[in-house]
Each structure stands twice: as structure tokens, then as C-alpha cells.
Design a protein around this nucleic acid. Structure first.
Length: 606
DNA sequence: CCCCCCCC
């Protein structure tokens, strides 16, 4: 197979010229910094004549390397790139190429060898190369942004370029910024802007706001303190594009951001920000990486994720006092659902909790919400840096609206945030009913907890729902006074209203046995995929639907967390097993466990 | 220079 590399293109690019979609061969790659989501790779590329390790892969293309798609010897077409001059201590300047888009023409495994005999490109080679290749268009002076308060820094402006590249070439890619180089201008879109926060600690006090910026090459967080906070807060607007220069760069603390950049920037008194008034539609807009709600349970706690869902219900505003700080907190729990059939609780705090209005079932978009785990179930928490948007004008949002209003509202859901409130931990191990029996779980004084992968083989629909005391903390079954009032023996009061709660009896089986179990309200909601209120509604008005629901849930598989204890009724002693928590199966986790046990049983490496 | 992001 013929591989026509763009011989000589590397030389042109290294001299600051532009070459449209050069075809090159990848000869090697090297991780230059970061790990996980923050890795950045450098490539050794060849155009057949020269080779050079000056190419950096934009982080959004990392996957191609990691998955092996972009293997050594691959022949690629570089569809989009920018170059930038970096100050190289003591050695003048060094040009880097940031690859933004790439098409793999022939996989490395098919090429299998180096093409031609490329020579390593060096400064000496550069000296012998023409400074301005003849094929380049006439250089154009770079227009400086009109509204800049100070003249835009003009460092590194390379004027040999075609007009479509002009604005990109004028500015520096975000991915190329580092603390070692301070003469740059970026052209970036504001993806997110925080509210102004104040702080006060031993080192002083002040206020700040932060913003997340992006361009073709990557993203970065910028923070403005005190004076700069006042100066720029009103000016900076989400979705707008700005030229920004003269900021301090420092290493980002990964604990507090999910942005793909090892650095973050701080505005200082020299910082220049000017709105870009030209067409900036080529710059990426806010990027969302929506996680389907039914897969949120598979993610690790403390992950920052983007989610979009319909607010199915919203709790009341709750006030509570933080035990650790004594601070008065306000929170509101909102239940989000999407067409994946999952439901998750999003907890709003403070101002956001106070002003939230969920009665119209708005579509809620939360970018950068934190996944938290409590008592074995997962939910989302709103952070200061979370971007919350109600009914955003996005295709995903319109789709969800349509789904919800056309039957989605009545869809069976599995609430991954369902909690029992009683679960006190226990081993993370899955065992079987046979193992539970052989370990004599439940025979002790305190009861035992265990987890198991099981199938719901039968559910008892009779008496699965009851009218409970409407008081927040009291779930006592009410006595119908037959006069429109219901009596709570615990509160010693009569109420005209009640709330429905579930108390579900069922059989759970695994390959080694089965067990009659009881699931209280939240666990039962997770198993039935319906809220107690919904089930109560069906019980009252749709008996057939109610019966159907209990049929449908049969043979669903869950990861159950049980509490089991021997109890004696009159003369009979038997195990009473309660479902603390029923979660949908995370098959990735399930397979890991399976592989581990295959290894243990067979001694064979899988 | 923040970096707390809460509670059950």
C-alpha cells in the first residue's frame, strides 16, 4: 500500500507556516504530564523527510492513544492544528504543534514500519530551510481586539498563515499555557462562572469568583480575587468569548476541579480581558458529558459529573444544623429522572435550595455536580462550582421534556438514591444464601448484614401499601376512624390526611437458595421502581395496574443488602431478613467480582 | 489569596 506522507510539511510548520491537512506518520508517543483525566501526550511525527517530537495531542484526543487506535507507525491526516512558540529557558523559543483533529488513514499495525528515512529535525536544519516557504500567502498584520484597554500582547504572533487560521494563530491555545511562559493571549469561551464567594480565615479575608474557560485545545479555570473580582465579575458572562492575557499560572489542585488542565490561572492587576466581538462560532461551546441516570450508581463517590433530568419531585426546604461547625444549613432534595429509567436525588444548598421551584417539573441541568455516597446509596450534591440551568434550550432538554410529558412521567423508575436509613455498613463482599447459612448469619444478638446478588422471585402485593402518619419523622400505620379522620397511636392525634408507605414482602433467590424478605419503604420503592405515593395512587384508582406492577417486578435482579436476625414469634423461631438497600446491578463491578472468584476457585489467571 | 461545598 502506498503511503504518501506530506514530505516537507514539518519543515514549513516548524518555520511557522501553515500546511493544510498534512499527512504524517506517528513514530512514537510519550506521556509528558499528568495522569488519568489530566494526561497529556507528545507525539514523535514524521513527514517522511523529517521527524520531530514537537507535536502535542489535544487532551480530547487522548482516548485514541490510550485505546491503541492511534498506534505507532499509524499514518494520519492532521485535520486541524495550531502551533505556538514556547519560551525555552536559555534556548530561545521552541515551537509546538497542538493536534486538534486527526484522521487515522492507516493503522500502525498495517503499516508496521517506519516510512522513508526521516532525519531528526533540528535548529541547524531550520537554518538551512527557507524561512518563508513560497507557497504561503502574504502575511497579514494582526488586528488587535478593538476594545482592549491595553494593547494586546503581541508576543509569538506568527503572521504567516492563511486567513481562516488568523484568529487562532494570533492567540495561544489554552493547552499550551504553562507557568514558564507569560506572554500569551488566549481566546476563550466562558463555560461557567461561579457566584461571588467570600472567605475569612487565619490568613485574611476577601472575595473571589471563578470561571471555566475553553477553546479548541482544552480548558482551564481562572479565578479573580478581591479587586479583580469587583473589576471583572459583571463583565464576564457565560457563553461569551474573550481575549484574555497577563494572568498568573499555577498548578491546579486536582481535588477541587474536574477540568482537564494541570494548571489554573489567577487574574492579577495586569490582567487584560476584552470581549471578542467577531464571529467566534468556531470556538467550542460549553461541553456537557451527560451521564444517564441509571448508570450513576456505577461511578465512584466524589466524581464530578454532568447530569440532565426532569425534576419529578422536590422536597420541602429543610433547615438543619451542621454538627461539626454548628452552622445553620438549608437544603432541598430534588428527584431527577431521565429516559434511562433511573432516578437520582440532587441536593441543593443555601440560596439554590431556597429559591428552587419544582412544581412545574422543570428540566434540570447540573454541570459539575458531585456524586456522594451515604449509607450505601448514591446521590448528587450541588457545589459552588456546579452550574445549574433550568429548562435549558438544548436538544437534550427538549427531548427529555417530550419524553416526560408523553408517558415518561409514568415510567417505572429505579431510584439509585433510595436509602433505608437503617443500613449500618457491613462487608462489601457478595455472598450466597448458602454461605449466609453456613456462617450462621442472624444467630447473634445484634443481627448480621450481608450483600448478595439475587433475583426477586415473588412479591406479595397484598398489604404492600399502608396509610402512614403524615408527620415527617413518624411512619406509624394509621387507624381509619371511618369518619374521614385517621388516628396515629404514636402521636396520639387524628389527621385528615396521610402518606402512603410501602411494606413489601417478597422472595429473593440466588443459585444456592432463597429467602423470604421484608422491604421497608425506600428499599421497596427501589425494588418496585415506583414511589410509595405512585403505588398508593394505583392502589386507589387502578387496581389492575397495581396488580400488574407486582407481576412486572418479578425476576428483576438486584444487589441486595440484607440485615438478618433470628426472631421468635410465640413458639416459632425463624430468620427475619430485611432489605436495607436494593441497587440495580453494576455489571462492571459484577464482572470484576466474578473474575476474582474464578481466580480464587480455579487458581487460573483470567 | 479559595480549596468550605455541609445533613442524614
Amino acid at each position: 500500500m502506498a503511503h504518501n506522507l506530506s514530505e516537507g510539511s514539518l519543515e514549513i510548520i516548524m518555520n511557522g507556516g501553515h500546511y493544510d491537512k498534512p499527512i504524517m506518520q506517528v513514530l512514537g508517543s510519550k506521556k509528558i504530564q499528568g495522569s488519568g483525566a489530566n494526561e497529556r501526550f507528545r507525539l514523535l511525527v514524521s513527514d517522511g523527510k523529517h521527524s520531530h517530537s514537537f507535536a502535542m495531542l489535544a487532551t480530547q484526543l487522548n482516548d485514541k492513544l490510550i485505546t491503541g487506535e492511534l498506534s505507532d507507525y499509524s499514518v494520519v491526516q492532521i485535520d486541524r492544528f495550531v502551533t505556538s512558540l514556547l519560551k525555552n529557558t536559555g534556548k530561545g523559543e521552541k515551537r509546538v504543534m497542538i493536534i486538534l483533529d486527526i484522521t487515522i488513514l492507516t493503522p500502525g499495525t498495517e503499516v508496521g514500519k517506519r516510512i522513508g528515512n526521516p532525519q531528526t529535525w533540528t535548529e541547524e536544519t531550520a537554518g538551512s530551510a527557507p524561512a518563508q516557504p513560497a507557497m504561503q500567502p502574504v502575511p497579514k498584520p494582526a488586528p488587535s481586539p478593538k476594545s482592549m484597554a491595553k494593547p494586546a500582547p503581541t508576543a509569538n504572533m506568527n503572521v504567516s498563515m492563511n486567513s481562516s487560521m488568523l484568529s487562532t494563530q494570533m492567540t495561544h491555545p489554552i493547552a499550551s499555557l504553562s507557568p514558564y511562559q507569560n506572554k500569551w493571549v488566549i481566546k476563550a469561551r466562558v463555560m461557567n462562572k461561579s457566584a461571588i464567594r467570600t472567605w475569612s480565615n487565619a490568613r485574611g479575608e476577601g472575595k473571589l469568583f471563578s470561571m471555566d474557560l475553553c477553546d479548541d485545545s482544552g480548558e482551564i479555570r481562572a479565578t479573580a480575587f478581591k479587586n479583580e473580582c469587583d473589576k471583572f465579575y459583571d463583565m464576564i458572562q457565560v457563553d461569551k468569548v474573550y481575549y484574555i492575557s497577563r494572568c498568573q499560572l499555577k498548578t491546579a489542585n486536582k481535588q477541587y476541579t474536574s477540568l482537564k488542565n494541570d494548571y489554573e490561572m489567577t487574574f492579577n492587576s495586569d490582567t487584560v480581558v476584552a470581549e471578542c466581538t467577531e464571529d467566534a462560532s468556531s470556538l467550542p461551546t460549553v461541553k456537557y458529558d451527560f451521564v444517564p441516570i441509571n448508570t450513576i450508581a456505577e461511578k465512584s463517590p466524589d466524581t464530578i459529573i454532568d447530569v440532565i433530568g426532569v425534576c419529578k419531585s422536590a422536597g420541602d426546604l429543610q433547615e438543619l444544623t451542621a454538627k461539626s461547625t454548628g452552622k445553620l444549613l438549608k437544603k432541598r432534595e430534588v428527584m431527577l429522572v431521565d429516559s434511562s429509567g433511573g432516578a437520582v436525588t440532587l441536593t441543593l444548598w443555601g440560596n439554590e435550595a431556597e429559591k428552587f421551584e419544582g412544581s412545574t417539573n422543570p428540566v434540570i441541568l447540573a454541570k459539575g455536580a458531585r456524586l456522594t455516597e451515604f449509607n450505601g446509596s448514591k446521590s448528587l450534591s450541588y457545589l459552588a462550582s456546579t452550574m445549574l440551568r433550568l429548562n435549558p434550550d438544548l436538544p437534550e432538554a427538549h427531548k427529555l421534556r417530550g419524553w416526560y410529558d408523553n408517558g415518561g412521567a409514568d415510567m417505572d423508575i429505579v431510584n439509585i438514591s433510595a436509602k433505608s436509613g437503617m443500613y449500618t455498613g457491613g462487608s462489601n463482599e457478595w455472598i450466597t444464601f448458602a454461605e449466609a447459612e453456613s456462617r450462621q448469619l442472624g444467630s447473634g444478638e445484634k443481627g448480621d448484614y450481608f450483600s448478595l446478588l439475587g433475583v426477586l422471585t415473588f412479591t406479595f402485593s397484598e398489604n404492600a401499601i399502608y396509610k402512614a402518619c403524615p408527620q415527617e419523622q413518624c411512619n406509624k400505620k394509621l387507624v381509619d376512624q371511618e369518619n374521614g379522620l385517621f388516628r396515629c397511636e404514636k402521636c396520639n392525634r387524628e389527621y385528615p390526611n396521610y402518606k402512603y408507605r410501602l411494606l413489601l414482602g417478597a422472595n429473593v433467590s440466588d443459585p444456592t437458595g432463597d429467602q423470604r424478605i421484608t422491604a421497608f419503604n425506600e428499599a421497596a420503592e427501589a425494588m418496585l421502581g415506583r414511589s410509595a405515593a405512585d403505588v398508593g395512587q394505583m392502589f386507589d384508582y387502578d387496581k389492575a395496574g397495581y396488580a400488574q406492577l407486582f407481576e412486572e417486578v418479578k425476576f428483576r435482579t438486584f444487589v441486595f443488602k440484607f440485615r438478618t436476625k433470628m426472631e421468635t414469634y410465640s413458639d416459632e423461631t425463624r430468620l427475619k431478613t430485611t432489605v436495607m438497600n436494593a441497587q440495580p446491578v453494576d455489571y462492571k463491578d459484577g464482572n470484576t467480582r466474578l473474575i476474582k472468584s474464578i481466580k480464587e476457585i480455579t487458581g487460573v489467571e483470567v
